[in-house]
Simulated assay, not measured.
Amino acid sequence: MSHEPRVASAFRVSPSVVEAARLRRRGRIWAGLIAPAIGLAGLLALFSEDVWDCVISKRGCGSTSGFLCLASLVIALAAVVTVQTTSRPTVRRAAFRTQLGAEAAFLVLVLVTFG
């Protein structure tokens, strides 16, 4: 029975480091899920009555501006980059919430435009 001395860790993992890793991972997951969600929103829009008039003849489409869709995607992308790169916890949390909100806004805009 040998008693080897315990070697203390060279560094301690703080709760903020754990939270940072968790938010970065969740940010990547939600960023990866936006493409399938767009596909699902498009599929749902196909079941509306006026979608083919909108797609083929541009009549009966929602009045949503393409600028709003693009703006929500740009905001989501900027938030993803911020979540992945910032070292400040409060900024990371705010950016993650902004990412989720911008992605949700984009999906709603897709549904409103084609639904």
Rank of each mutant, 00 (worst) to 15 (best):
F47L: 12
A41P: 07
G66T: 10
I38R: 03
L40C: 04
L44Q: 12
L100M: 12
L70H: 03
V108G: 07
A102Q: 07
A94W: 07
C61H: 03
R97E: 06
S2P: 13
V80Q: 07
F67E: 13
L70D: 07
E4D: 13
R97D: 06
M1L: 05
R22I: 11
R22A: 15
R97F: 11
K58V: 09
T86D: 08
I75V: 15
T64G: 05
F106L: 13
A102C: 02
A104Q: 00
V18P: 01
K58T: 14
A71W: 07
W52L: 13
E103N: 11
G66P: 10
L109D: 09
L43C: 10
V18S: 11
T85Y: 04
R97T: 10
S2F: 09
R93T: 04
V55R: 12
F96K: 00
R92Y: 00
L44P: 01
R24M: 06
A104M: 09
G42L: 15
R92P: 00
A21Y: 05
C69P: 00
A20Y: 00
L40G: 13
A10N: 06
C69D: 09
E4S: 13
P89Q: 13
S14W: 04
D50H: 12
P5W: 03
A95P: 02
A10M: 06
Q99N: 04
T90G: 08
A94T: 13
A41Q: 08
R92V: 00
V51Y: 04
L100H: 01
A71S: 11
S72T: 15
Q99H: 05
G62E: 06
I56G: 01
I29Q: 11
P15C: 03
A105W: 02
T64I: 14
T85I: 04
L109T: 08
S72K: 04
C61P: 04
R97M: 07
A79C: 12
S63T: 10
R6H: 12
G27Q: 01
A10E: 12
A8G: 01
G39C: 04
V74G: 08
T113A: 06
V83S: 01
H3D: 13
L111F: 06
L23A: 07
S14Q: 10
S57E: 12
V74Q: 09
S9I: 00
R12C: 10
D53C: 03
R12L: 12
G66A: 14
A102Y: 05
W52Q: 11
V83C: 01
S9Q: 11
P36D: 05
S2W: 02
E49C: 00
L109Y: 10
F114N: 05
S48L: 01
L68N: 12
H3F: 08
R88N: 11
V13D: 08
A20R: 15
S2Y: 06
V18A: 14
A8H: 05
C69T: 05
F114H: 08
R59D: 14
R59N: 13
G62K: 06
E19M: 07
D50P: 02
A71P: 02
L46T: 15
A8N: 04
L109V: 08
A10S: 12
S9F: 03
S65Q: 10
S87D: 12
R97Q: 05
Q84I: 11
G32T: 08
S63M: 03
V13R: 09
R59V: 14
G42V: 08
A105Y: 00
A76T: 10
F106P: 04
T82M: 07
S9A: 15
L107S: 08
A78I: 09
G32Q: 05
L43N: 08
G66W: 14
